[in-house]
């Protein structure tokens, strides 16, 4: 009887999805839908938090005060995005502490792009332009996803990401009008970040285990390959505009499909970095764990203080 009513609920849920209804926190949802959302939103929030590290790496070395201020503001935005999305996962019944523990233990994933090192100032440009550019393509699609809190978060976050994308592009554009050393610095950054940014969209559709289910529930509206193609199509002309060469000899416009064709992505590298073998995997996770451990006494002090003052208020 009970399983019958569960089936009935799931049927109604699917009908709501088909109608294009937005699912809200208090609505009934299949356990699997909840889990998938927690996984995706968690990965997204963790990526924002870990993503602060490669860019934080250049705050103290930004080459002008304006660039320093802009970079500080960008990293601050990322912390805010992380906080916002963690609040979103709380609506699904998972606390921020639990999410954080999963990140620190290495159980939860975050975007592999942040396991690549930032080796020059131009990397701040490449991350803004390519990494945030790829994130915008992903997130613009997610802004129409079926889960209300996540969709609304994406609308707000995309606005800020658009700023970051423009700022990143402007960093590279400035370098490309500069000295030969600056141009080489910009090109080198793009050479290193182009392929990893294509990998940000995840495995090719035929190897993506979650895609079918997520599309059925309208969490995802487009496949990984569709989104990747959209990113490539919009990015190639931007590279050409400022004289950057994308490191793919097979990249060419196909007038029949009206899309760019591109070379094969090195999926071995992709899976290797996911498995923990990127140059910065260990360093990133260690930085987060160190911050957490070194901050323990601060959090304990804040809790103790709040406890004491709650007692005083009660007594008074």
């Amino acid at each position: 009887m009970e399983s019958h009513s569960e089936q009935e609920k799931e049927k109604q849920f699917n009908e709501r999805i088909d109608r294009g209804d937005i699912i809200e926190p208090k609505d009934w949802m299949p356990e699997r839908y909840r889990k998938q959302l927690i996984r995706i939103m968690g990965q997204h929030a963790h990526s924002e938090i870990v993503g602060m590290l490669p860019e934080g790496n250049w705050i103290t070395r930004a080459p002008s005060l304006r660039r320093k201020a802009v970079l500080l503001a960008k990293v601050q935005d990322e912390a805010g995005h992380g906080l916002y999305i963690y609040s979103g996962t709380e609506t699904l019944g998972v606390s921020r502490d639990q999410m954080n523990q999963e990140l620190l233990s290495g159980k939860a994933k975050y975007s592999s792009i942040f396991n690549y090192p930032t080796l020059s100032w131009a990397d701040m440009g490449a991350i803004g332009w390519l990494v945030d550019g790829a994130a915008i393509v992903n997130q613009t699609a997610l802004a129409k996803c079926s889960y209300g809190p996540y969709a609304r978060a994406m609308i707000r976050i995309c606005k800020e990401e658009n700023f970051h994308h423009k700022q990143g592009y402007e960093i590279l554009a400035t370098l490309m009008t500069g000295t030969p050393e600056q141009k080489a610095m910009a090109q080198d950054a793009v050479d290193r970040f182009w392929w990893p940014s294509l990998m940000m969209f995840g495995p090719s559709d035929k190897d993506s285990p979650n895609t079918a289910e997520l599309m059925r529930w309208k969490v995802k509206k487009y496949t990984n390959d569709d989104l990747r193609q959209r990113f490539i199509d919009r990015t190639v002309p931007q590279a050409e505009n400022i004289g950057l060469k994308l490191p793919d000899d097979k990249l060419k416009w196909n007038p029949d499909t009206m899309h760019y064709e591109h070379g094969e992505i090195n999926w071995d590298e992709f899976y290797n970095v996911i498995k923990g073998n990127g140059i910065c995997n260990h360093q990133r996770l260690k930085a987060r764990n160190d911050a957490h451990d070194k901050g323990a006494w601060v959090r304990e002090a804040a809790n103790a203080y709040a406890g004491k003052h709650a007692e005083k208020t009660m007594a008074a």
């Binding site: 938090i49 602060m52 590290l53 934080g56 705050i59 103290t60 320093k68 500080l72 990293v75 912390a79 992380g82 906080l83 963690y86 930085a287 160190d290 911050a291 070194k294 901050g295 323990a296 601060v298 959090r299």
Partner: peptide, 12 residues
């Protein structure tokens, strides 16, 4: 700026 990403809590 050196603290960025290393604070004791996200709010900090």
């Amino acid at each position: 700026g050196e603290w960025c990403g290393h604070g004791p809590i996200l709010e900090e």
